[in-house]
Design a protein around this nucleic acid. Sequence first.
DNA 1: CATTACCCTATAAAAGTTATAGGGTTATTA
DNA 2: TAATAACCCTATAACTTTTATAGGGTAATG
Lengths: 136, 136
Amino acid sequence: MLSKRAKYAIKTILFLYENKDKTPISAKSISEQENIPYKFLENILRDLRTHQVVKSMRGPVGGYSLAKDPNEITVTQLMRIIDGPVALIPCVSEKFYESCFECTDEETCRIRKLFNQLRSEMIGVLNKSIVELSKL
Amino acid sequence: MLSKRAKYAIKTILFLYENKDKTPISAKSISEQENIPYKFLENILRDLRTHQVVKSMRGPVGGYSLAKDPNEITVTQLMRIIDGPVALIPCVSEKFYESCFECTDEETCRIRKLFNQLRSEMIGVLNKSIVELSKL
DNA sequence: CATTACCCTATAAAAGTTATAGGGTTATTA
DNA sequence: TAATAACCCTATAACTTTTATAGGGTAATG
């Protein structure tokens, strides 16, 4: 399951994109309009900032705006930043690989083959940019 | 992420299928050969039995065997029995639908559209039978 | 220089995952 | 017919992750 954190992150980025003429937008404002607990949102925004998806301005009239071309921001990226691996088992993850100690041989593991194929298909769907997502 | 429970379930069913000439097979034997904690396995087997994927025989020389044609047992089924929904958000789940109260309108929600498409693709990959999985 | 809004660390409440404990019941087979 | 092997069932413990909340610090605008 997608975590609420990740869902909030996607909603936040979509919101910033669709209101990019009004930026920067305060966390408080995002929180109210998207129904995201304020302090929880701040925490998420910090992650997004660390990963340079979002940039911030301090002081009154400060707030957040996208740090890069929205065509370059994908759902996959956001999921990886917030939730970690897209893959359903760690031994087929591209960015967060870990051997799963249950299986003795990765080369012949059928479960691994199936979930590797699954990961490919998932990324095919999720590699949509925020611009594309906005048009759905 | 796939839970260990689900992974154990898949391994168990695959094991029963590939040793179907020797059935019934005791939980103890499965536990040892597949490296699954015995009591945990019993618990998983109970779920599988309840859902008629597996049947059991008591007494000495008792154990477990597949309750139906292995061509009819799919990975999707096992995942649903053990982990619940395949979908990554509840509002697009076929078997475990729940409205996600964050979004106001399901019809227009773009996140929903994307994850609905994702679920379709996932099921396309995961609807493999144990027989097919065995051949991978 | 007061206000607004971002910034940061710590921690708590709740839920989910991964088992473990301890015993009860059934059916085979010696 | 009794010992034994194996399934059956409930409860709960240990651990991790998720979902926040608290409380204050820091920068920049008007």
